[in-house]
Design a protein around this nucleic acid. Structure first.
Lengths: 198, 198
DNA sequence: ACAACGATGTTGTTTAGTCAACACTTTCGT
DNA sequence: ACGAAAGTGTTGACTAAACAACATCGTTGT
């Protein structure tokens, strides 16, 4: 029933991680998402099946979390820590999104097209979160309000995500790097009311 | 207070494993046993400190379990599965004991000599267990009673363990292989009332 | 010498995970 | 087409793990 678990409890973190890892392993083996059962996942994670349902609504909710997690980790690898809102980090961010889309197209080929919505939600949400974090860091220095940074984060997350999705669906006649460069210009401009990037 | 936990409970197995793994990792880093605290182990294992005490009396009790575990795994690697009482497996068993002693001498050098008793108990107990298993397998075919196999296991476990301990303390003027060969002859003979090995 | 500190065990309470059992749906072989 | 087998989601009772708080016991340093 996925009744809220306390995310700060070490047991919860561990089990969650075990489940996601198990899922990753099974995906590599079985190839197609459909042939993986909740039983398989629970068993591989050395966790009771009922525990799975304490963490995730169902297999699809897990897939969404899994995608977010994958994307999140990829970002952590690419971005410096601590990361801040700069042209350079923004470029890396956008490029990572394009990379991630490309990989997704490879792994979740033609059949599993039904999962695109989950994938999209995962990436966009994650984008929103990191942009919000960045904007909050600088919102004090300029006089930007709470709503301003939230709206800005939302707009920009879609401004990055959307083109990447569209590009990955198409023929990729333009290189990812070129796309990134173009998007970066627009996004930077849209940020100008809040911050001027160098 | 190490009040009996149910060993068949998956949670118990998991945390036990986590604790032992954490200990292994810390041993490789910190080198000396003394500088590793219970807090360190619990933290590394992502387990609460109180949970440690639910599993082990104290750090030393854990060291004993750890040694048994290491020896057990080494045996599992060396012996075929399923293993049975044969001259060949017996030779492997004895040789593994000698190897293990040699490694122990390397890692737990002069200072930590205080842990020898723990080490000895671990190895002897493990030896006893596997011998008992083997003997029970064949005790039905011959008319050997419960006490007979238990006593035989006990005697032989010491007959293997003792010489190996003594040899490892000495100058190793005789090779391990030669020692194994000599011990094997005696042990085989001592088994003759119960079983004739081929 | 003794105060401050850090590690050790222990305890009571709360929460997460296990388990077996349940009704239900989906898949599949013959 | 139908019965068996396998997967899904849920529940309530039981157990392990987390947590905070405590008293205790060395170490260290000044």
């Amino acid at each position: 029933m996925a009744t809220s678990l306390n995310l700060s409890d070490p047991r919860v973190k561990r089990t969650r991680q075990l489940l996601l890892q198990a899922f990753t392993a099974l995906l590599e083996e079985k190839q197609n998402f459909h042939s993986i059962s909740v039983q398989d996942i629970a068993e591989r994670a050395t966790v009771n099946r009922a525990t799975f349902y304490a963490h995730f609504e169902d297999k699809y909710a897990m897939l969404e979390s899994w995608m977010r997690d994958k994307f999140h980790r990829k970002l952590e690898l690419q971005l410096p820590t601590p990361s801040a809102l700069q042209t350079s980090t923004l470029r890396v961010l956008i490029l990572t999104v394009f990379d991630f889309f490309a990989r997704f197209r490879q792994n979740f080929k033609p059949a599993d097209r039904q999962f695109e919505p989950l994938f999209e939600i995962a990436v966009q949400q994650e984008l929103y979160d990191i942009l919000l974090t960045w904007l909050k860091q600088v919102s004090g220095k300029v006089g930007a309000g709470q709503e301003t940074v939230e709206t800005t984060s939302q707009v920009i997350s879609w401004a990055i995500f959307g083109p990447a999705a569209q590009w990955s669906r198409g023929e990729q006649t333009v290189s990812a790097e070129e796309m990134v460069q173009r998007i970066l210009i627009v996004v930077t401009a849209s940020l100008s009311p809040v911050i001027t990037l160098t």
